[in-house]
Structures are given as structure tokens and as C-alpha cells.
């Protein structure tokens, strides 16, 4: 029999490996692997990072990269706002009312399981190849996820705080702002997180199928030209935009709205 020693303290990483340096090293490692793979392949189907970045700079200065990114970003934001608004209202209502939940639940299951492609095609067929059909189709794909998340949130509302609000006769709007919405904040955060990433993927499909511009359209075009450098360039550019939104907008906002949490007694 051997004796196993159990460390009472968890293993601690050296200080260097705990800061943002790790993230930077991780990205540099990825670029290195990509670079080596491209050097070995020596094919125009796998351009290296240098070629892709050179293409991105070139397209930014002399091409359409920025306007195309802007158009796609606007579609992402528009679909996001529409989906979050409608989804939140429906989700909260369904979480609060059992009757409404029973009435709408079958539709929710249908929408959850309907492939994005079907919704997009039908939207274009029925409403034409226009901006409203595109944004509506993307939003409709996202709405059921928002509903499911916010419905859970509305079901988890604290009845004790609700009673407190009623006993102290808080007006409905004040109650919504001070008691209900702060409790739903984590659910909003979860819905938006998964929302933005899902929406931008579907926006590309919508653009590929029926819009004359945007990142999805450019990808489609360059796919026909077999221009992998352009495909990777556009993808990387948009990923950079989304990373910027995540780190410069979403995370600081989240830290602000949850600053009352994680305070030691």
C-alpha cells in the first residue's frame, strides 16, 4: 500500500502565468502554429498569417473591408436589439403566467427546432430580398433562446422581495426598475452573451443568401474565386471587432452592474 499525500493548499501557478500575459502567449502560440503549417503546406489554399494580415491592411486602406464590416455590424446590432426586446418581454411574461406559458410553449419548441436556414429562406421568399426580411429572419432565430433564458429568470424571482415591494406599495415602474430587473440581470447577461455570437453567425448566412453586401457576401464572392486569403482576412477582421466589443464593452459593463456582488462580509 502506498500512502497518498494530499496537499492542503491548491497548486498555485507562478505569478507570471496568472496575468493577461497568458492570454497573449496563447494567441502568439496559435499564430506560430498557423505560420509553421502554412510554411509546410506552401499552398494558396492555406495562406500564412503574414499574407492574411497584409491583405487586411490592403483592403482596409484601398478596399471595402471597413464599409462591409460596418454593414454586417449594423445588421448584428439591429437583429440583437429586436431579438432581445421581443424575447425578454415574452420570456418574462411566460415565466410569470402559467396560462400564457402553456399557450406559447408549443410555438417555442417549434421555433427552437426550426433550422435557421428554413426561416431565412422563407423570410426571403415571402417578404422579398430586403433588409427587413434579413434582420427579421436573424432575430426570429434568436428570439426562442432569449425567451427560454428569461423565462427561467422570471421563474427564479424571489417571492420575498416581491412581497417586500408590495407591502411598501412600490409603484409598478419603480418595482420593475429596483426589484425585478436587477434580479434578471444575470439572465440578460447570459442571453446577450450567447446571443451576439449566434446572431453574427446567422447574419453571415443571411448575407450569403440574399444581400448584395456585408461580410457574408464577401465570403461568398471569395469562395467562388477560391481566394482563401480574403476569406480568412474578412473572418479575422470581424472576429477582432467582436473581441473588441466583448472586452471593451460587455465585460466592463458587466463588472459595473455586478459590483454589489463578491463583496466579502
Amino acid at each position: 500500500m502506498s500512502v497518498t499525500l494530499i496537499r492542503s493548499e491548491p497548486l498555485r501557478l507562478p505569478r507570471v502565468l496568472r496575468g493577461p500575459l497568458v492570454s497573449v502567449l496563447s494567441i502568439l502560440g496559435f499564430l506560430l502554429v498557423w505560420y509553421i503549417a502554412a510554411e509546410i503546406a506552401q499552398s494558396r489554399l492555406l495562406p500564412g498569417p503574414v499574407a492574411v494580415i497584409r491583405y487586411m491592411v490592403q483592403e482596409t486602406l484601398h478596399g471595402d473591408l471597413l464599409p462591409e464590416l460596418g454593414i454586417t455590424l449594423w445588421r448584428v446590432i439591429a437583429s440583437f436589439v429586436v431579438a432581445m426586446t421581443i424575447g425578454s418581454v415574452l420570456g418574462i411574461a411566460m415565466g410569470q403566467s402559467a396560462a400564457l406559458n402553456r399557450a406559447l410553449d408549443p410555438w417555442l419548441v417549434v421555433l427552437l427546432n426550426l433550422p435557421a436556414l428554413v426561416i431565412i429562406i422563407l423570410a426571403y421568399v415571402w417578404f422579398g430580398l430586403n433588409e427587413a426580411a434579413a434582420i427579421g429572419a436573424v432575430a426570429l432565430n434568436k428570439i426562442p433562446n432569449v425567451v427560454v433564458t428569461l423565462r427561467e429568470g422570471a421563474r427564479a424571482l424571489d417571492p420575498g422581495l416581491d412581497e417586500m415591494a408590495r407591502a411598501y406599495r412600490l409603484p409598478p415602474l419603480v418595482k420593475l426598475r429596483e426589484v425585478t430587473l436587477p434580479q434578471l440581470q444575470p439572465y440578460f447577461a447570459a442571453a446577450s452573451r450567447s446571443g451576439v455570437s449566434l446572431i453574427w453567425k446567422i447574419v453571415l448566412v443571411v448575407e450569403l443568401l440574399g444581400r448584395p453586401n456585408g461580410v457574408g457576401f464577401e465570403l461568398h464572392l471569395n469562395f467562388q474565386l477560391f481566394n482563401v486569403t480574403a476569406i480568412l482576412g474578412y473572418t479575422l477582421a470581424f472576429v477582432a471587432v467582436m473581441l473588441a466589443i466583448e472586452y471593451l464593452l460587455v465585460q466592463p459593463l458587466e463588472r459595473r452592474t455586478t459590483r454589489w456582488r463578491n463583496k466579502a462580509v
Partner: peptide
């Protein structure tokens, strides 16, 4: 106007 003190404090944690 009612002032109600519950068995638990029931304060809003985010305020």
C-alpha cells in the same frame, strides 16, 4: 402606509 419588518431582512442586495 405600512412599515413591515419581515423575519428576514429582505433588503435589495444591489442597492
Amino acid at each position: 402606509r405600512i412599515g413591515l419588518v419581515f423575519q428576514e431582512p429582505r433588503l435589495l442586495p444591489w442597492r
